[in-house]
Design a protein around this nucleic acid. Structure first.
Lengths: 350, 350
DNA sequence: AACTCGATGGAAACCGGTTCCTGGTGCGGT
DNA sequence: ACCGCACCAGGAACCGGTTTCCATCGAGTT
C-alpha cells in the first residue's frame, strides 16, 4: 500500500536519502553493513528503502569497485546435449559462488566468438570460459592466444573447457577430458568382443575432439595387433544428421564391417536410425557404440554402449579453477577421466 | 610489439588521453563517433587506444546512460531439450539485437527464482524472461505478479514464456504455445486410428503445461464421444525416468490400453524403454506418442509420433516483444500454434 | 565546569565513463 | 587590417553508487 507511481522511475540512493531525511552516505552505510549507524536512523532508512522498493544499481557498484564480477561462457550451440551439460555445470557453480553468468552461442562463427570475448573484456568479466572442441590450427592458437593475453591484461582469465590447449606460457586454464583414452577403452572393448572391422564415424578432420577419439580408435587397434582399414574411417560432424548420412553412405558403398563406433552419441543415434531403415538389426547384425553418454543413450533401442564424460563436473571445475586463479598464476592443465558404459548395443561376434 | 606490462591494470580513458596528449573528453568523442574531431587528433587517439589495448568499461557506460542493456532468462534446467531450444532462441535473438544475455537455472527452487529476479532488477536488465511451465496456484500468481510490478517500476519488463499468464492488468508479456490444442489434435489422431483406451502419462497435477495437455486429451475424447477412463490418467513429472517408472507401474497393474500418449517426448522415451523391457512391440502391440518434437524423437525406434512445438521461435518472439514494449505498454498475450508430426509409433488398431 | 573521547552523520572526492558549455584558434570575407 | 564564424578541444558537471575525512554532539571524567 504505497509506492509504484506507475512511472518507470527507478529510484536512486538520493531519493531514499531524501525520504529518510539523511544523507546518501548514510543510506549507503545502512545498506552496506559494517558501519555504526544508530538504530533509529537505520529504521528510518530501511523504511524508506521498502517504501520506494529501492535496489542499488549493480552497475554503479561495479564501477565503484564493489559488487560481484560476472563470468561468461561461450559455446557453439546450447542445444547440443553435452554442451548443455557443461553449461549447466558452469552456471550452477557460478551462482553457487555468487556470480552472474553471461552466455553466448557462436554457431561456430569465429568472428562472433572474437566479438563476444571483446565485449566480455569491456564488461570486466572475472573469467571467460570457452567450451567445446575446435579445429586446432595454427590460426586457432594464434587467435586464442591473443584473446588470452588480452583478457589477462584486463585482469580476467580465459578458460578452455574441452578445447585444445595453447602452447606453454599462455595465460589460460585448460580443462579437458580424455578423448583418446576413452575411445581407446571403448574400441578395445569392441575388439574384445571379436570385432575386427570397425567402422568409425568421425567428426571434422581437424577438430581436436574428433581427432582425439580417432587416435584412441587407432591406438586400440595397434595395441591389439589389428590393422585398421583406413577406408573405415569416415568424417562428418557431430550432428545426428551427419551420423545418418554417413551411415547410409557406408551402407550404399557396401563397406564391410561388423561394428560401428560413432564419435558422439548424436552421431550414433543418426547411424542407428539409418541401420534400422536398412533393415539391419542392432546388435544382431551389427554392433554400435557412441560417445558422451547423453541421457538419451539409454532410451535408444538397443540401449547404447558409450563412454561417459563428466560434462557437468567439467563445467563446475572450469568455474572453480578460473575464479581461484588470478592473472599472475601460472597456466594450468587439468585432464578429466572417462569410463565406458556397457549397455546392449555391442554384442560379441559369433 | 608494445603494451602488456604483465600487470593486470586495465587502462582507463584518462590513460589513453594522457598518452595521446589530449583530454578525456576528446578520447570519448573519438571513440563515440559522431563529433567533429580533427583527423590528426583522431589518429593519435586511435594509436594510443591500440597501444594500450583499451576497451571502454561497459559498466561505466551503462551508469552514464549509454550502452546496451542486458536481458536475462531464467529456466529450471538448461539440460532439458525444450528448455535448451527456448534458451537458444532467446540468446540468438538477443545477440542479433545487440544485447547481452544473463542466464540462471533455478532447479525448480522458487526462492532461487525470486533472488535472481531481484538481481536482475539491480542490473537494470531490459527484460527478464521466465521460461517453462509452472504450477498455477494463487501463490504463484501473487508472487509472479509482485515480480512483474517490481520489475516494471524499475523500468524493465517481465516476460512469461510458456508460463501461465497472470490476471489482467499485470505488466507482463505472455508468450505461450497451445498445449490443449496440440494434445487435442494428437489424441484425435490416435483415436482416429481406432484406439479406444489410451493411457496418458501426465506431469505434475497442477503444472499448467501438463494440465493443458491433459485437457486436450479429455476434449478429444469428448469430441469423439469416447469415455475417457480416469484410471488411464497417470501423473508424474516431465523426466525420462518418470515415464519409465509410470509405464512399468501401468504394466504391473495390468491396465488395459492399446496406445500411450506421453506428456513429453522425454516421458515417451522412458516409456518406450519400459515397453521394450516388457517385451512389447511398438507399435505392433501398443502405439505410443509424445509431445515436443525434440530432435531425438526421430531416432527412437520406432520414430516417435509427436507434436511439434516451435520452441526456438518462442524464445525469439519473447525477446522481440519484450524489447519492443515499454513499461507503459499494455499487457500482451501471444499464443503460438503447434502441429502433429506423424511418424511410426502409432499404428491403426486392427 | 572544562576536557576528552567515542559514536554519528554530512560533505566531498572518487570510480570510469559521457556530454554540455565555453573558449581559443585559424580561416575567409569585406 | 578587422570581424565573425566554423571548427575543435578542454573543463566541469553528471550518472549512481562508495569511502575517506572531518565536524558535531552527548556523555563520562576530574
Amino acid at each position: 500500500m504505497t509506492r509504484k507511481s506507475g512511472g518507470a522511475s527507478r529510484s536512486t540512493i538520493r531519493d531514499v536519502a531524501l525520504r529518510a531525511g539523511v544523507s546518501a552516505s548514510t543510506v549507503s552505510r545502512v545498506l552496506g553493513g559494517a558501519y555504526p549507524v544508530s538504530s533509529a536512523t537505520r529504521t528510518r532508512v530501511m523504511r524508506a528503502v521498502r517504501d520506494l522498493d529501492y535496489v542499488a544499481d549493480a552497475r554503479a557498484k561495479a564501477v565503484a569497485g564493489v559488487g560481484t564480477p560476472t563470468l561468461a561462457f561461450v559455446l557453439e550451440d546450447i542445444t547440443g546435449p553435452s554442451f548443455a551439460h557443461m553449461a549447466h555445470g558452469v552456471e550452477r557453480e557460478a551462482t553457487r559462488l555468487g556470480h552472474l553468468c553471461l552466455v553466448c552461442s557462436t554457431e561456430g562463427d569465429v568472428q562472433h566468438e572474437l566479438d563476444f570475448v571483446e565485449m566480455m573484456r569491456a564488461q570486466r568479466a572475472a573469467a571467460v570460459i570457452l567450451v567445446g572442441g575446435s579445429a586446432d590450427t595454427p590460426e586457432y592458437r594464434e587467435r586464442t592466444r591473443r584473446m588470452a593475453d588480452s583478457l589477462a591484461s584486463a585482469g580476467s582469465r580465459l578458460v578452455l573447457c574441452g578445447r585444445p590447449p595453447l602452447g606453454p606460457g599462455a595465460p589460460v586454464t585448460v580443462i579437458e577430458y580424455d578423448n583418446e583414452g576413452g575411445a581407446y577403452a571403448l574400441v578395445a572393448h569392441v575388439l574384445a568382443q571379436g570385432h575386427r572391422r570397425i567402422l568409425f564415424l568421425g567428426g571434422k578432420p581437424d577438430h581436436t575432439t574428433a581427432l582425439g577419439r580417432e587416435r584412441g580408435y587407432l591406438a586400440a587397434h595397434r595395441a591389439r595387433g589389428v590393422d585398421a582399414d583406413p577406408a573405415l574411417l569416415l568424417h562428418g560432424d557431430f550432428t545426428r544428421d551427419s551420423g545418418h548420412r554417413l551411415m547410409r553412405q557406408a551402407l550404399a558403398a557396401e563397406l564391410e564391417f561388423t561394428a560401428v563406433v560413432a564419435a558422439t552419441d548424436m552421431v550414433a543415434a543418426g547411424a542407428l536410425t539409418a541401420l534400422h531403415e536398412a533393415g539391419l538389426n542392432v546388435p544382431g547384425d551389427v554392433s554400435l557404440a557412441g560417445y558422451d553418454d547423453i541421457p538419451f543413450a539409454r532410451d535408444l533401442h538397443p540401449a547404447l554402449t558409450t563412454v561417459h564424460v563428466p560434462y557437468e563436473e567439467l563445467g563446475r571445475l572450469a568455474v572453480r579453477t578460473a575464479l581461484g586463479r588470478t592473472a599472475e598464476t601460472r597456466a594450468e592443465h587439468l585432464l578429466l577421466g572417462t569410463h565406458v558404459v556397457v549397455r546392449d548395443s555391442v554384442r560379441a561376434v559369433e
